[in-house]
Nucleic acid binder design. Structure first.
Lengths: 127, 127, 127, 127
DNA sequence: GTGGTCTAGACCACC
DNA sequence: GTGGTCTAGACCACA
């Protein structure tokens, strides 16, 4: 896996797990990859994955069963969504709107930009 | 002044200066507060303000005159706007769109949210 | 069976066996459940039960007969009591006293708490 | 500093900080030693101290100010006490009493044991 | 100066 | 096999 420079790897791994949970690749109650396996797959140090898992555990998204590994907690999906939503509406959007105001961008344009971005993304995936 | 946890303080101070420039509180060619004064007002280490000023200077928004302080450069307004635009389109928007995708928010809703936010803002200002 | 987070599962299983021996549910010379059966009943990996049995065997509380299973050793009751005593006085009490000191709890209060706890326990049993 | 074998070092360091807070050596709102300093003083790896501080931060006992270090949070004293108390009364004491019952120890004896332990401790400190 | 991230690798208890 | 602790040491962003 490739990582961005701007965000700590361990958080990007946590994001990755959350996405898989939202997608349904990792089911609630299901086991997620062991620290070692994931660290090998992602080509990172096991400690880094462990840190990700610790982070997710502290947020109640996964939990561990002694000796057997980490599992997706019940209600994790909803938790991830609500955390993301909260952050989006309370922190990200207001800032976006403020910048738009200051730059004189009209909200109606956003949909256009979105579709342009979407096309670009889709193209990336096909490659 | 209070700072958000998510963005380095020195950048938030730079943002603050830029806003004042766009507003017209700090005019092109005019002097901006000394590092010392601003650091005291913001309850921040002078080095932090210095770093903000250095950042703005490197982007050609302000310049220093030995012995007298920092001044808003000619053309600063235009520069600030273009920097804001760049950041908005290259960094902020893609992230916003990605989150929307993962949360299942449709771009058409954005205009609605914008108007709601706008109303709130206007109300704040009248008080 | 439910396990506390603070103590290894295999020791909690050993505790469980010891309690049964003290109660008389498991008599000296009598057979205790097979590793397989107990592991299923407790919803635990057989290796974990095996480790408990190994631990008890190493302390001379149980012994195995090839092909037939594990049996409570003669003198086991006495042994269990002395082990409990040792642990209580050397490990548990010092910790308790240290915490009391730091919390400012006086030793004289302990008797009061004990009687309150005792009443509660008795009530539970009558239900 | 010397550490017990039975408890992770990072938790023992966290305990150490909590004790200092209860004592008043570290005041609420006051700064605690930097990660580096404490790690040198305790002859442990900085990462270990960092983990302690992370643990305390997650429990709301300390917080960090960017660039300047960790500080005792307001209400930390009370928090530490209440956490300790809760653990003592709900987890430790019931177990102690249960063992006492099973061993036939009378609650009145506890005060005697306590004073014996206390004397021993005092003697250690004078050396 | 502060904390924080990350790696490499050893060693451990537990299931 | 699982997670967890700890070290040594590099390197970084931030104040």
């Amino acid at each position: 896996m490739e990582f961005k420079e701007t965000r700590p790897i361990y958080l990007q791994i946590a994001d990755f797990i959350c996405e898989r949970i939202l997608e349904g690749t990792f089911q609630e109650g299901g086991r997620i990859p062991s620290v070692r396996d994931l660290s090998m797959e992602m080509e990172v140090n096991p400690n880094t994955v462990l840190k990700s898992y610790g982070y997710l555990e502290a947020h109640g998204i996964i939990h561990k069963q002694r000796g057997t590994g980490f599992y997706v907690s019940p209600g994790a999906r909803e938790k991830v969504r609500s955390l993301q939503k909260e952050r989006f509406f309370n922190e990200v959007l207001p800032e976006v709107f403020a910048t738009m105001d200051s730059l004189g961008i009209y909200p109606e344009e956003l949909a256009t930009y979105y579709h342009a971005w979407k096309e670009e993304e889709d193209e990336k995936k096909t490659h």
